[in-house]
Design a protein around this nucleic acid. Sequence first.
DNA 1: ATGCCTCCCCGAGGGAGA
Length: 259
Amino acid sequence: MKIASFNINGIKARLPLLLEWLREAAPDVAILQEIKSVDANFPREPLEELGYNVATHGQKSFNGVALLSKLPLEDVTRGLPGDEADEQARYIEATVVGTRALRICGLYLPNGNPAPGPKFAYKLAWMERLRTRAKALLSQEEPFLMAGDFNIIPQAEDAARPEAWRKDALFLPESREAWRRLVHLGLTDAFRALHPTREGYTFWDFQRGAWNRNDGIRIDHFLLSPQLADRLTECGVDKEMRGRERPSDHVPIWINIDS
DNA sequence: ATGCCTCCCCGAGGGAGA
């Protein structure tokens, strides 16, 4: 089973590229971030025509996540537990049942800049809520994954110019510490597990010619539960997507697992 | 670089992104 994650940076602007990529890459499940659309305006029909079931958790203008799956999406839940006052659409879960059930957690983790400040505090609190959710899922011993735009550069080797990110919320020690606290529950960073030294950037800024200079960072991730990590066979990044016409600033990351 | 693009809102130009 192939599962992909893609921060599309606006469904309205990215639908042609998304459809093109879905036809080519043909993931069984696609986890989308930054749909920047309310649920009612999300273009379900062209996606359903490609054979996908669609579940969205959108909001106006910003954020918004979605799940596409060729298998039925069951027990869909929207929003990350732990803060009733949080109205940002950044989290969606569903179960897909192939030969075995798999819980999919799609997330768009807050950017957190400027740091310090309220946005950074929100990011760290959100990560603690995510860790709480991961603990609950681990205790159920059902295979699961958390995937999406984590807005975390885990280590210096995950940036072309790590020094440029020293004071950024994506790379500050507190952010990376929160990432490690999550991973150390027993989750596997799929890309690093299979490719210990490979580049793996998933984001290049629109500004300053970042793409042409390959000034990238690895911030989109797949974290796998122990049972699922045992079935991981492949993990890749569709880097060439960044060079296409009217690209997102992110590219897709995907895994293959034994079903 | 106190932001050099691109998205969103809409119908100007500001907020957000990372």
